[in-house]
């Protein structure tokens, strides 16, 4: 599912402006978005999901502008933060609810959950499961990411999916994301602070810096080093690394 942003501008008073003249993520691509805190990654993802109205321009998913209808929602799935969880449900109930919104019956939900059961340790799923609000941050994140993967969407949008996960789970998640893409041709937009993981999963990485796309390149063997050098120069300088 193709994602296209055209002349996209979102202002938050005088303090911050996100400005993306043009960005296209082609159907089936895995696109990584990296940047410092406050660079505008989550803002862009919210604009892409029509959770924020742009001040100028628009985002289109699969050719349809997100602010002009809801049909795209059946093909898109996302996990941005805790607000994508329903904290008073157990993980089973939540996954079942999410499945029902995508017209998945109980058997299909069960069947689709099978590959993810190893991803959950402890007793996150099952009879004695606790409410999501009582789970650790890592387990809650896993529930949110699996809920996003469950509908096998055409476009998957994840914000910081590796944050709060233990090393084993991070590796498992990378594998799950790769399989999702290989088996179902899912287009992915993943924002992350973790340069290593995002370069492992995505074939194209864009750096968002102070609301603007500073770099946008295909992933190569050198990408990780280049990105580390980019952010090191930012740390050594005055915060923004666009000049580097």
């Amino acid at each position: 599912m193709r994602l296209e942003a055209q002349r996209l501008v979102k202002r938050f008073g005088d303090s911050f402006t996100l400005s993306i003249p043009q960005l296209v993520v082609e159907d089936g691509a895995a696109f990584g978005l990296v940047g410092n805190n406050g660079a505008g990654k989550t803002t862009f993802l919210r604009l892409a999901l029509d959770l924020l109205p742009p001040d100028e321009g628009h985002v289109a998913l699969g050719g349809a502008r997100v602010d002009e209808g809801d049909d795209w929602k059946t093909r898109v799935s996302a996990h941005l933060d805790d607000s994508f969880l329903i904290d008073f449900l157990t993980p089973d109930e939540f996954l079942s609810f999410v499945g029902s919104t995508y017209d998945l019956d109980a058997d299909t939900v069960e069947q689709r959950l099978a590959p993810y059961r190893d991803f959950f340790t402890d007793d996150v799923l099952g009879q004695r499961a606790r409410y999501i609000r009582d789970l650790s941050m890592g387990n809650a994140k896993k529930v949110g990411v699996v809920a996003a993967l469950l509908p096998r969407p055409d476009l998957l949008i994840l914000d910081e999916p590796f944050a709060n996960l233990d090393p084993r789970s991070q590796i498992q998640l990378k594998d799950l994301l790769r399989r999702q893409r290989t088996e179902h041709g899912t287009t992915m937009v993943i924002s992350s602070h973790d340069l290593l993981h995002v370069t492992d999963v995505c074939e194209r990485i864009a750096v968002l810096d102070e609301g603007c796309i500073a770099r946008d390149e295909p992933t190569t063997e050198e990408t990780l080093k280049t990105l580390e050098a980019y952010f090191s120069s930012a740390a050594a300088g005055n915060g923004s690394a666009r000049a580097a």
Binding site: S96, A106, E110, F120, V124, G126, Q127
Partner: peptide, 13 residues
């Protein structure tokens, strides 16, 4: 405790 599936309450039907 071991994990066992519980009826989740939400269904397409």
């Amino acid at each position: 405790t071991g994990a066992a599936t519980v009826p989740a309450g939400f269904s397409l039907q």
